[in-house]
């Protein structure tokens, strides 16, 4: 899906847990997430902690979208 939206002309950041699949299928901007059933959350945390976790992940995604890339890039930091 990532690839087709990008083909349509938009930069896409793929936020997913299983980074190897994302790399295999060909996403260009990848942000690793928490776990498959809750990529952007963690039920073990308090609501506020969870929001903070989500903010950090979104910050990474925004950074990915504003970074020029030449090849498939995983934004770990």
């Amino acid at each position: 899906m990532v690839k087709e939206i990008e083909r349509a002309g938009l930069p896409v950041v793929h936020m997913c847990t299983v980074v190897p699949i994302s790399l295999t299928v060909g996403a260009n901007r990848i942000v690793p997430t928490v776990a498959i059933p809750h990529p952007l959350g963690n039920p073990a945390l308090s609501i506020e902690e969870e929001k903070e976790l989500r903010r950090k992940l979104i910050d990474k995604a925004l950074k990915a979208l504003t970074t020029e890339v030449e090849e498939q890039t995983v934004f770990e930091q």
């Binding site: 847990t17 299983v18 498959i36 059933p37």
Partner: peptide, 11 residues
């Protein structure tokens, strides 16, 4: 025997 977990680090 091995598992198929939801966390990448586990995989």
């Amino acid at each position: 025997i091995t598992n198929e977990n939801v966390y990448l680090a586990d995989k």
